[in-house]
Simulated assay, not measured.
Amino acid sequence: MRFVHARHWGRVLAGCALLVATGLGGASSASATTPGKGTDGYCQDDNGVTVIVDFQGLGGETLIRCAPGKQENGVTALQNAGFELSGAGKYGLAVMCKIEGKPADQTCTGMPPEKASWSFWTATNGGKWASAQVGAQSWKPPAGAFEGWSFAIGKSYTEYPPPRTEPVRKAAAPAQAPASTSDSSFPWGLVIGLGIVVVIGLVGAFVMTRRDLDEKSPFLRRKRGGK
């Protein structure tokens, strides 16, 4: 019978523990917005500005967030909604280069190219998107307004598309009833994972003990020595 060396069992146990920890923890999901600012979804009343960011051809889902309260201008609304921004070179945030790190291939050292740029849109609740006639830093959003940012690829300024989400305030989804405490509060995943590690440890200990006993047995020593 071939036995596994103790050092090998240590590696096996360490690997199992790592797998259990990884399985219990799950994959971490990076936040798409700046923590601590804004709320997800539409503003529920006129006390705030709803900001919609449509990445269009860049890929990724359209983001909708609320910048609560009165907003000084379009840029502060974008910031207070929780979006990460990068301005274009010496122009700063007066010319938007990136929102949430997109487009990733732009250096932001100067003006973005016309055919790969963010366009700025405004609307009232229930109205239609209109291309902003002033820069985002000069726009004074009224209470309850909508602000839209849409990325254009391969289009001239006059062809820039508005956000594909209509500027219509929608009610928040009703809160789901809390799950039964008997099902959700007890950490079954942790218990099962630890149980797996314990079982593997016991098996390893049994094998090592069996090995020691066999090596100490005079009968096996004689058998292995051919006597």
Rank of each mutant, 00 (worst) to 15 (best):
residue 4 V to I: 13
residue 11 R to D: 09
residue 18 L to V: 11
residue 23 G to A: 07
residue 25 G to V: 13
residue 27 A to N: 05
residue 34 T to A: 08
residue 34 T to N: 06
residue 36 G to Q: 04
residue 40 D to R: 15
residue 44 Q to A: 09
residue 44 Q to W: 05
residue 48 G to I: 04
residue 53 V to G: 01
residue 53 V to C: 05
residue 54 D to A: 07
residue 58 L to D: 01
residue 58 L to F: 07
residue 58 L to M: 07
residue 59 G to I: 04
residue 62 T to A: 05
residue 66 C to I: 07
residue 70 K to D: 12
residue 71 Q to P: 07
residue 72 E to L: 08
residue 74 G to A: 03
residue 85 L to K: 03
residue 89 G to Y: 10
residue 89 G to V: 04
residue 89 G to W: 07
residue 91 Y to T: 09
residue 102 K to L: 11
residue 105 D to E: 15
residue 105 D to R: 14
residue 108 C to G: 06
residue 111 M to W: 12
residue 114 E to C: 10
residue 120 F to H: 03
residue 122 T to K: 11
residue 128 K to R: 05
residue 132 A to G: 00
residue 132 A to E: 00
residue 134 V to Q: 00
residue 140 K to D: 06
residue 141 P to H: 01
residue 141 P to C: 00
residue 141 P to L: 00
residue 143 A to F: 01
residue 152 A to C: 02
residue 155 K to Y: 06
residue 159 E to F: 01
residue 167 P to W: 01
residue 169 R to D: 03
residue 170 K to S: 10
residue 170 K to M: 06
residue 175 A to R: 13
residue 175 A to V: 04
residue 177 A to I: 04
residue 177 A to P: 07
residue 180 S to A: 13
residue 182 S to I: 06
residue 182 S to Y: 11
residue 183 D to I: 11
residue 183 D to Q: 12
residue 184 S to R: 10
residue 186 F to P: 02
residue 190 L to W: 14
residue 191 V to F: 14
residue 192 I to L: 12
residue 198 V to K: 11
residue 199 V to D: 08
residue 203 V to Q: 06
residue 204 G to I: 06
residue 205 A to K: 12
residue 207 V to D: 14
residue 210 R to D: 15
residue 213 L to P: 13
residue 214 D to N: 15
residue 215 E to F: 05
residue 217 S to M: 08
